[in-house]
Amino acid sequence: MAGDRDADPQGSEATASTDGRSARIAGWLAAARRGDDAARERLFDACRSYVDLAARYHLQRRLRAKVDASDIVQQSLLEAHRGFDRFAGESPGEWLAWLKRIVVHNAYDEAKRYRGTAKRDAGREVPLDGRGDAAEAWAFDPASSEPSPSQHAVRWEEEVRLAAALEHLPEDHRDIILLRNLERLPFEEVAKRMGRSAGACRMLWMRAIAGLREQLGESTPDA
């Protein structure tokens, strides 16, 4: 996939498609809420990379190690599917925030399981269907600096576009952007996690950002 895009010297096709996708999310969301299953499929498809990124971020952040997040991506999408009727918001911003809440909830559970601090399953609050999960993912945390849904709404297009572009990067590029830009770790820490020197990480990071800009169609090498 990434290879195809690389063959495109302008890198503009990928950009156009991700842009188009995000612009259509609002339409799909509205149609899906009216019960259009095909639109719902497309909506989920378009948000998959966002969910994937959020899942990696939250799991990795909790476990402080690189882990396979595909389980919680699956689980979260499944729950979102099943709980879709419960989603009460209307804007894509609210939609993404809702998706993220489900991811955070699952990452929380998964991290607990990984660390073995889930004392006994029996003692946990276990919601038994997707609706429950979605309901339990809570919305407002006064200790977090998250913007309110309305602030969030302004940026969602950019977020989806970036998440999609990141997905097309090579693995190590994506990893380092996740650590440095999203987790905001200093390079000393990034180096420890990646098992490379800080200098090498910095170089890798710079190339990763260059690659991302290319994905986004920001840089045209000769311009």
Partner: peptide
């Protein structure tokens, strides 16, 4: 030319973090 991308990523970081991340 790099700033837009970095700012975008930083916005994404803020958006993707949020609740559950005290």
């Amino acid at each position: 030319p790099w700033t837009a991308c970095l700012r975008g990523l930083d916005g994404l970081a803020a958006a993707i973090a949020g609740e559950g991340e005290a």
